[in-house]
């Protein structure tokens, strides 16, 4: 996964959206360059698929690069991968949220994991859980059209490696997860599921 993280000087939705497209373009170009160092420079167009999920299309070729974009003002992040993966990213500001949010969105296993953690770590774990759930929902191209409780990220919350098992509607899938802490207040995550027919079930 190739990351591109920027701090936008403008924080309007339009400015963040533009910055997100630019970040996705740079990430896709870098991913292509890494996969083929001797290859030519590629012109990228960020387009949306039928589900509204962004993808980077290489102009003049049939090739496309998986990309995902997220923003939490003033930060924008994009990830790209030339491998056949379902890719999702999310960036969140770390702050307290109402108990009702966590009651509704966390699975029993996630709640138990967070409750067992030291008190000072719980807020961070809650936001990490949300962020990863949203990244997974984006990877599958459904966003919040599917309840976040359908995603179980317990293993990823305590993982010390980037390869973890994530629950998606009761089925466990292997995924690669990368975290990025921008400063004490923001956290970003990217998740990639190897593309297969089973993943899409």
């Amino acid at each position: 996964m190739i990351w591109d993280l920027v701090r936008s000087s403008e924080t309007t939705r339009a400015a963040l959206s533009t910055a997100g497209h630019q970040a996705a373009t740079r990430a896709a170009q870098r991913a292509l360059q890494i996969s083929d160092p001797r290859g030519e420079h590629h012109t990228i167009a960020i387009e949306k698929d039928v589900l509204g999920k962004p993808e980077a299309r290489v102009l003049g070729s049939a090739q496309s690069v998986a990309v995902s974009i997220s923003h939490a003002a003033p930060f924008v992040c994009a990830v790209a991968d030339t491998a056949p993966v379902l890719l999702g990213t999310d960036i969140e500001r770390i702050r307290p949220c109402t108990t009702a949010v966590w009651e509704a969105c966390l699975t029993p296993a996630e709640k138990a994991f967070i409750a067992a953690a030291p008190r000072r770590e719980r807020e961070m774990l809650q936001i990490r859980a949300w962020s990863l759930k949203e990244a997974v929902l984006k990877a599958f191209g459904v966003g919040l059209r599917v309840h976040p409780r359908n995603v179980d990220v317990t293993n990823a919350l305590g993982a010390t490696t980037s390869t973890v098992r994530i629950g998606w509607r009761g089925v466990w899938h292997t995924a690669t997860v990368e975290w990025m802490h921008l400063n004490p207040t923001y956290v970003a995550v990217a998740v990639a599921f190897p593309f297969s027919a089973r993943t899409l079930e």
Binding site: V101, W130, P148
Partner: peptide, 10 residues
């Protein structure tokens, strides 16, 4: 952000 939207929904 999306957490606020989810909070609104519930």
């Amino acid at each position: 952000d999306s957490i606020k939207l989810f909070e609104l929904l519930i």
